[in-house]
Simulated scan of single mutants.
Amino acid sequence: MIINAMADQGFEVRHAEDFREHYARTCRAWAKNLSANWDAAVAESDAATARVWGLYLAGSSIGFERNEIQLHQVLGQKVAAGGQALYPLRPDFGS
């Protein structure tokens, strides 16, 4: 749906990636960070908000691991009228 919607608006899709496995690990790392910095997190917001955030991170990491949720990144580009995109044949994405 996302790719079709982008194409309908004149974007050429140049790259699409599913970050599911990455976000399972990312959410787990964020949960550990939250736990390690619990007092600061509560001071920044409140205990209820910190607990909800922790629950969200734990649930999301499990959901990503079980493939119940996914996160996709889609890179699109408006192509010039003459068809020139100036997109590299082998992009390195800044690495």
Rank of each mutant, 00 (worst) to 15 (best):
R66T: 12
E21S: 14
V42A: 02
G63S: 08
Y23A: 00
Y56T: 03
G63P: 04
Q73S: 07
L34R: 08
Y87T: 10
F19M: 09
Q77W: 02
E21D: 13
M6T: 08
A29P: 00
L34V: 11
E44Y: 06
F11W: 13
Y23W: 10
E17S: 14
C27Q: 06
A47I: 13
S35C: 09
P88S: 05
G82K: 04
N4F: 10
D8V: 01
A48G: 02
W30E: 03
A31F: 14
G54H: 09
G94W: 08
A80M: 08
W30F: 10
C27A: 13
L57G: 00
Y87D: 10
F19E: 05
T49F: 12
Q70W: 11
F64R: 03
H22E: 13
I3W: 06
A47S: 14
A85H: 05
L75F: 00
E68D: 11
R28F: 13
A31W: 12
S95P: 05
V79Q: 03
A29I: 08
L55P: 00
A41V: 11
H72V: 04
D18C: 03
R28I: 11
E21W: 11
A80F: 08
C27L: 12
D8S: 04
E68M: 07
R90E: 06
D92C: 01
Y23E: 06
T26E: 02
A58R: 07
A41Y: 09
H72C: 02
R90D: 03
A40Q: 09
W38N: 06
L75S: 01
L57Q: 00
C27M: 14
G10Y: 09
A7Y: 14
R51L: 13
E12R: 12
E65D: 07
G83A: 15
M1L: 15
L57A: 01
D92R: 02
A47D: 14
D46H: 08
A16F: 14
L89P: 00
E17K: 13
L71R: 11
S35N: 08
L89H: 02
Q9T: 15
Q9V: 14
K78M: 04
N37L: 15
G10W: 06
G10R: 06
S61P: 01
A40S: 11
